[in-house]
């Protein structure tokens, strides 16, 4: 499971970085989204991977039977913030497209 998650994060982050460095604004925003997915998975992984374990204490089972709840709450916050920022970036991207007439990140074709 660790290998699959690690490869998944790697592929997402790699594609994200490649897209961010592309010259079209749409590619940049998709790249940023992919990067934030990779980061969200990474945050999740930092609570250690565990299947079928609830993050809620029931007072009966041993502590080792639980998943760490903190990264789960962190990832929730990160998703919300990342989503809001991406939406905002989309607006700026459209404004830039409207004002400059091109979708190049520098506002002009080379």
């Amino acid at each position: 499971m660790e290998a699959v998650i690690a490869i998944g994060i790697g592929v997402l982050a790699g594609s994200g970085v490649w897209l961010i460095l592309r010259p079209r604004t749409f590619q940049v925003i998709i790249g940023l989204s992919l990067l934030s997915y990779a980061v969200n998975l990474f945050i999740f992984g930092m609570g250690r991977l565990r299947s079928n374990a609830a993050p809620i204490l029931d007072g009966v089972s041993a502590v080792t039977a639980y998943a760490d709840p903190v990264p789960q709450s962190l990832v929730l916050t990160a998703i919300v913030i990342g989503f809001a920022m991406t939406a905002l970036f989309l607006v700026v991207l459209l404004a830039s497209r409207g004002l400059t007439g091109t979708d190049h990140v520098d506002g002009q074709e080379r």
Binding site: F42, I43, S96, L99
Partner: peptide
């Protein structure tokens, strides 16, 4: 708008680094 586009893209990418760093420390 042009300057903000760069500023926002830069900072969104930076926020990802912030999260990676903070959670790696937590881990």
């Amino acid at each position: 708008v042009k300057a903000s586009l760069h500023y926002i893209a830069m900072n969104l990418a930076t926020s990802s680094l912030f999260l990676i760093g903070a959670t790696a420390i937590y881990g």
